[in-house]
Simulated assay, not measured.
Amino acid sequence: MERWRDRVAVVTGASSGIGAAILTDLAKAGVIVVGLSRHPDRIRSFDSTPEAQSRVHPVQCDVTVEEAVKDTFKWVEDNLGGTDILVNCAGVFYQGRLIDEHLTPQIKETFDVEIMGTLFCTREA
């Protein structure tokens, strides 16, 4: 990981689960990490060292909103010099059966977050 020290990583879905774990590990390894989430107040480095915490930049971004993604990656470019690493971890999970019509909004949200969000972020990175 030494070769990635001081590089810039953008991690989507960084406020919980796999995204939060990756954000933490990257910060501990010396990577500057921009954590994207709809809830940036939940993003934190679990390493208590000031160095690791200073490397984490929580940013509010709903990856399903194309303009929000564009604005976020412009901020990364303007303030940190661009994106060297992109980790797409944003996701939602609903249980149910595909044939249940009342789940259509949840199915659409899943598609928007996991497919369109990944597409928007990858394109901008």
Rank of each mutant, 00 (worst) to 15 (best):
residue 38 R to Y: 03
residue 22 I to T: 08
residue 121 C to S: 05
residue 23 L to V: 00
residue 102 H to Y: 15
residue 18 I to F: 05
residue 23 L to K: 02
residue 125 A to S: 13
residue 97 R to Q: 15
residue 87 V to N: 03
residue 11 V to T: 00
residue 18 I to N: 05
residue 20 A to P: 03
residue 25 D to N: 12
residue 74 K to C: 08
residue 85 I to K: 02
residue 30 G to I: 11
residue 31 V to M: 05
residue 63 V to P: 00
residue 65 V to L: 11
residue 92 V to D: 06
residue 39 H to D: 15
residue 62 D to C: 01
residue 112 D to Q: 12
residue 24 T to M: 06
residue 92 V to A: 04
residue 42 R to L: 14
residue 100 D to N: 14
residue 125 A to P: 03
residue 104 T to I: 15
residue 5 R to W: 07
residue 71 D to G: 12
residue 66 E to Y: 05
residue 51 E to M: 09
residue 20 A to V: 06
residue 21 A to P: 08
residue 116 M to K: 11
residue 25 D to W: 08
residue 116 M to N: 08
residue 84 D to R: 04
residue 42 R to H: 12
residue 113 V to L: 08
residue 101 E to R: 14
residue 10 V to G: 06
residue 112 D to C: 04
residue 71 D to C: 09
residue 84 D to L: 06
residue 63 V to S: 04
residue 22 I to S: 02
residue 100 D to K: 10
residue 55 R to M: 07
residue 88 N to V: 00
residue 94 Y to P: 13
residue 113 V to A: 02
residue 8 V to D: 07
residue 41 D to H: 13
residue 89 C to R: 06
residue 113 V to T: 04
residue 76 V to Y: 02
residue 93 F to V: 12
residue 11 V to R: 05
residue 13 G to D: 01
residue 63 V to Q: 01
residue 100 D to P: 02
residue 13 G to A: 01
residue 17 G to T: 06
residue 43 I to R: 04
residue 108 K to L: 15
residue 42 R to E: 12
residue 123 R to Y: 10
residue 66 E to C: 04
residue 44 R to L: 11
residue 73 F to P: 03
residue 93 F to H: 15
residue 21 A to D: 08
residue 63 V to Y: 01
residue 59 V to D: 00
residue 95 Q to R: 15
residue 41 D to K: 14
residue 115 I to N: 10
residue 22 I to L: 02
residue 67 E to F: 11
residue 37 S to G: 01
residue 122 T to K: 00
residue 119 L to N: 11
residue 105 P to S: 09
residue 54 S to W: 09
residue 44 R to E: 13
residue 100 D to T: 12
residue 47 D to Y: 09
residue 88 N to W: 01
residue 69 V to Q: 02
residue 75 W to G: 09
residue 54 S to I: 00
residue 108 K to C: 14
residue 109 E to P: 07
residue 56 V to I: 07
residue 62 D to W: 02
residue 81 G to A: 06
residue 123 R to K: 14
residue 68 A to I: 09
residue 33 V to P: 00
residue 3 R to Q: 14
residue 28 K to R: 14
residue 18 I to V: 09
residue 104 T to G: 12
residue 117 G to K: 03
residue 68 A to W: 12
residue 14 A to K: 09
residue 105 P to D: 07
residue 9 A to S: 03
residue 74 K to P: 04
residue 87 V to I: 10
residue 75 W to I: 11
residue 19 G to W: 06
residue 14 A to P: 10
residue 121 C to Q: 02
residue 107 I to R: 12
residue 2 E to H: 13
residue 106 Q to V: 10
residue 89 C to H: 09
residue 74 K to E: 14
residue 85 I to S: 07
residue 21 A to E: 10
residue 36 L to A: 03
residue 98 L to T: 15
residue 61 C to V: 04
residue 32 I to A: 11
residue 119 L to W: 12
residue 64 T to W: 05
residue 12 T to Y: 03
residue 55 R to G: 05
residue 84 D to M: 07
residue 10 V to C: 04
residue 115 I to C: 12
residue 83 T to P: 03
residue 34 V to T: 06
residue 125 A to M: 11
residue 19 G to Q: 01
residue 117 G to Y: 04
residue 100 D to I: 10
residue 107 I to E: 09
residue 76 V to Q: 00
residue 2 E to P: 10
residue 58 P to C: 02
residue 112 D to W: 05
residue 16 S to T: 07
residue 113 V to W: 02
residue 25 D to L: 13
